[in-house]
Design a protein around this nucleic acid. Structure first.
Length: 964
DNA sequence: GCAAGGTC
């Protein structure tokens, strides 16, 4: 005993020691960020250890947090930790109407590839006192932060959560963030939730509909492997390309005329521009020319010389990298980003997905320039920059998380496009931190008669950044040395004819600029969207110009014929406005979500209603008529059989077996809910009908059952009013028809929630229409009050007044009576069913287990009379519940010594069904327990406990209290 | 098989 006490004291003191230092779990958005932040906050003294994920390390150090020396455990996620997906049959393309996806259940889950990251966080948070979110300080980062919080709170509900807000990855900013820890902003996260859910719903619904429809109608043009996808970013992106193409197609060229004036002297020809530029009236232009020729002398009226600069490029953000790379290197934006990401992971450049185009004053630029001095091509220029002192030309954008793209490590060993992209980033950086080019511009004005002309000359004085930034040209232009009042006879004074030309096709760089301007996608996704619509065949590339493909044209034209603006950026821009309003607390996220769902659902309904327009538009572009022989798509509607009694959220539906040998019943919420009902061998097949049950009013659909022995049906004499026999099938409602369940060997609890409270009375009264809400269970267990029993939408079939039972009206006896021993007519019915369905067995073989359970639970004689009185009071306080037979369950007390002694429980009166339920736990849990544990109590008991000390983790043989 | 958004 003494040893035990000493051990207890030792354990207690150890616990105290472990709590004398606060421990914070910090989580960044990516491993690189965790590494950098840890290194800075620890002054380079953090210790690295492994997490479950090989890509996401753990960095440990100590520092002062909120005035207390604390242990820091720093780890990371890899972007979003959770994803969304439809559940059950809504995941399958041909198992539901796509329109259902606007309201179908969506499951948030951790993808398998991030499971290890989640496990690391779960493990580390167990021993932490606080959680600090260090994700990027943008909208997505806030949402990722809440995903981390969700995972942590599942382990430690009460953990204190803080948000570190930093403007960049520099020491002052990060330290400031740690000393000014704030609360995470749920509104920002909710805006992302809205965007995310909406994108999934509309993307999946439209994509499935378009793909299935058009593939079916145009099998020669759209292959079975093709997708005709719709996305709220990809289709407006397609829209830009189509719009430019249409502008070009619709362009009508016009002739114009202008007056050309040149002056050649000393082998130099200077060209003058006419102040009127051009005229579209030839006769007018000719008349003016004649007046000029009549004079035939130009007079210099003004000479103005002024300095002119050509600005060096701004600090580079992602969009600039994509645009410049696409224009100058002629590499697609997607490939540029792929290469940039590779360079980043190799440490050659900073993070390439950034919206920041200004360098923080805290970022030391000189060392970055110094490291480039060794390069043979630009090393000399880097030295010049050092002489000048690095002076970046900054923009005004910041994502508050990443610096502009810049080189972080010197290399001269890259090859191919990797070398070219690295070179672009280095040259851009050196140019940005150097000096503008300087020149001197001369503008000369002249008149010929009454007409004004001008000419410009340029002398480049200092090339500066142009020496390193080979992607830009600045050409000088010589001009004669004029003085005011000089005159000259024009070398050429003539009429010049020209034609207006259409705009050019969009380049990828133009498209990215348009996407950015209209808020389509993010800097990190522009290239991805362009790549996607290329993959879909919506657009193609001709001489570096983007052109719509025939499918892309057909889609956009189809939408326009239906007066839908799906291919224009306004819909998405409207969402962005709403998301901003959510972030600022001006709009409720759920309101926005519902509004947006309705907007897109209306579009969807228009498409399905007027789909002939889409068919025609696409058909016209393909040059074929829709395939008239195409069979209509067979999309199986999901028929609700009844509400799943296990999850009580989704419905029981019919599913086909994988080997296509038949069907089974399963919860629609699979895999979240794995409730399934496997049919026995007396059923050959079961299908659901469009027809709904008129008896239960639950919107349940009837089942069409084919038995393995057809002759049995011929012997069925009477069926309930809502059921019938048809072409060798039995058609009924499995929810209402208890006898059918019996025949199919489906447990009542597999289709109905058992244990519904029927009365708080001590007398086991069986009610036909129990009204749960008006008879709340009287129970001292607060868990019960926190988890109220869900009322059934229609409980009348739970009533066991068999004389009035609907099930019984046409001779299908109620389950509660069929196996009872006090009803002769039941016995008769039972006999007839035994004949009809030889495989059906009664509960006769339960007798042994019944007696065993009776012995276990009702060990009468052990308790005193006082005990029994107390037990009786306890039982009287319990509400009455229904068992699987739809009859009032017995209320008993465990008398046997053991962990459950004195606990109240319910069981079937007579052990006709295997119903068991503890009286002191919430009812839904009990139902599950009954299924899992057979005789009951399995899950409630939790981990197996030692029979001696009642602690988990060991048993009687190795109980530490004995060993000592 | 679907989106868009993170990330490796």
């Amino acid at each position: 005993m003494l040893i035990r006490i000493l051990n207890g004291v030792r354990h207690f003191s150890r616990s105290l020691c472990s709590y004398d230092k606060m421990k914070y779990l910090c989580v960044a958005e990516k491993n690189d960020a965790a590494k950098t932040i840890s290194s800075i906050l620890s002054n380079g003294h953090s210790n690295r250890r492994e997490g479950y994920s090989q890509f996401n390390k753990i960095y440990e150090f100590e520092m002062n947090v909120r005035g207390q020396n604390s242990k820091i455990v720093f780890t990371s996620v890899s972007g979003h930790l959770l994803n969304r997906e439809f559940t059950g049959m809504h995941r399958k393309w041909l198992s539901c109407n796509p329109e259902e996806l606007f309201h179908a259940q969506i499951l948030k889950y951790c993808p398998e590839r991030y499971e290890k990251i989640k496990q690391t966080i779960e493990r580390e948070v167990r021993t932490s006192n606080g959680l600090i979110i260090w994700t990027d300080c943008d909208r997505e980062g806030e949402n990722i932060g809440y995903e981390i919080i969700e995972v942590c709170r599942a382990i430690k509900p009460g953990i204190q959560v803080y948000r570190a807000k930093f403007s960049d990855m520099t020491a002052p900013s990060l330290r400031r963030a740690m000393t000014n820890l704030a609360a995470p902003d749920e509104r920002i996260s909710q805006a992302v939730e809205v965007r995310s859910e909406l994108d999934l719903r509309i993307g999946a619904a439209f994509t499935r509909f378009q793909t299935l429809r058009l593939k079916n109608l145009f099998p020669q043009n759209i292959s079975q492997d093709d997708l005709v996808s719709y996305g709220s970013c990809q289709i407006p992106t397609l829209g830009f390309v189509v719009e430019r193409y249409n502008e070009i197609e619709a362009f009508i060229s016009s002739n114009f005329w202008k007056i050309k004036l040149t002056h050649r002297m000393n082998n130099l020809t200077v060209e003058y521009n006419w102040a009127r530029n051009r005229l579209f009236d030839k006769q007018c232009c000719e008349a003016i020319l004649m007046l000029c020729k009549a004079e035939n002398l130009a007079i210099i009226t003004n000479v103005n010389q002024k300095p002119k600069s050509k600005w060096r490029p701004q600090a580079m953000d992602t969009v600039e990298l994509e645009k410049t790379g696409s224009r100058k290197l002629r590499i697609t934006a997607k490939e540029i980003m792929t290469i940039a990401e590779k360079l980043y992971t190799q440490g050659f450049i900073s993070y390439p997905r950034t919206e920041t185009n200004k360098f923080s004053p805290d970022l030391k630029l000189r060392p970055l320039v110094e490291m480039q001095t060794a390069h043979p091509d630009w090393g000399e220029f880097a030295n010049r920059v050092l002489e000048w002192g690095p002076n970046p030309r900054n923009g005004n954008k910041s994502d508050q998380a990443h610096p502009p793209i810049h080189p972080t490590k010197f290399t001269n060993s890259l090859a191919g496009n990797e070398k070219r992209v690295y070179e672009l980033i280095v040259r851009h950086f050196l140019a940005c931190v150097s000096r503008d080019a300087v020149g001197s511009e001369t503008i000369v004005n002249a008149t010929v008669g009454d007409e004004e002309f001008n000419a410009t000359g340029l002398v480049i004085l200092e090339r500066n950044y142009l020496d390193v930034y080979i992607y830009e040209k600045w050409t000088g232009r010589e001009i004669h040395r004029y003085e005011i009042g000089n005159t000259f006879v024009p070398t050429v004074l003539d009429l010049h004819e020209g034609k207006t030309s259409p705009p050019s096709l969009l380049t990828e760089a133009d498209l990215i600029a348009l996407m950015e301007k209209h808020g389509i996608g993010t800097d990190a996704t522009h290239a991805e969207h362009i790549s996607t619509i290329k993959d879909r065949g919506y657009i193609g590339e001709v001489d570096r110009g983007l052109v719509p493909g025939i499918l892309g044209m057909g889609l956009v034209e189809g939408y326009k014929l239906m007066n839908l603006t799906l291919s224009q950026p306004e819909l998405r821009a409207g969402l962005e406005v709403d998301l901003k309003a959510i972030c600022e607390g001006r709009k409720n996220p759920n309101d926005v979500l519902q509004e947006q769902i309705e907007i897109y659902k209306n579009c969807y309904q228009t498409i399905t209603r007027e789909v002939a327009h889409l068919d025609r538009a696409v058909g016209n572009r393909f040059g074929v008529q829709p395939d008239n022989n195409a069979q209509p798509l067979r999309i199986t509607s999901i028929h609700k059989i009844c509400k799943c009694p296990k999850c009580q959220t989704e419905s029981i539906i019919i599913r086909r077996k994988k080997d296509n040998t038949g069907s089974f019943l399963s919860c629609q919420g699979y895999p979240t809910c794995k409730h399934a009902i496997w049919l026995k061998i007396n059923v050959k097949d079961v299908t659901s009908l469009d027809e709904k049950c008129t008896n239960c009013n639950n919107d349940n659909h009837k089942l069409k059952i084919k038995f393995s022995q057809p002759y049995m049906l011929s012997q069925v004499e009477e069926v309930p009013a809502y059921s019938r026999v048809e072409n060798g099938h039995y058609i009924t409602c499995i929810y209402c028809d208890s006898k059918a369940r019996e025949v199919l060997q489906i447990k009542t609890e597999d289709v109905k929630v058992l244990g519904n409270v029927v009365s708080a009375s001590t007398r086991p009264v069986v009610q036909r229409n129990p009204v749960i809400n008006s008879n709340p269970p009287r129970n001292n267990n607060p868990a019960l009050n926190n988890n109220p029993v869900r009322p059934q939408s229609n409980n009348r079939n739970f009533g066991t007044n068999s004389n009035n039972s609907n099930d019984n009206r046409r001779g299908w006896p109620d389950n509660s009576r069929s196996s009872g021993s006090n009803n002769n007519s039941n016995n008769n019915n039972q006999q007839s069913f035994a004949n009809l369905f030889p495989n059906f067995t009664n509960n006769q073989n339960n007798n042994n287990s019944q007696s065993q359970r009776r012995n276990w639970f009702n060990n009468d004689g052990d308790g005193s009379s006082d005990d029994r009185r107390r037990d009786k009071d306890k039982l009287n306080a319990l509400p009455n519940v229904l068992c699987g037979c739809n009859a009032a369950a017995l209320k008993l007390i465990v008398r046997k010594d053991g962990p459950n002694k004195s606990r109240p429980f319910y069981k079937c009166n007579g052990d006709k069904c295997k119903f068991f339920q503890w009286g002191d736990v919430p009812l839904p849990t009990t139902v599950q327990t009954m299924q899992a544990g057979g005789s009951g109590g399995g899950n409630e008991r939790g981990p197996k406990k030692c029979g001696i000390c009642r602690q988990a983790g060991h048993n009687r043989k190795n109980c530490p209290s004995i060993n000592r």
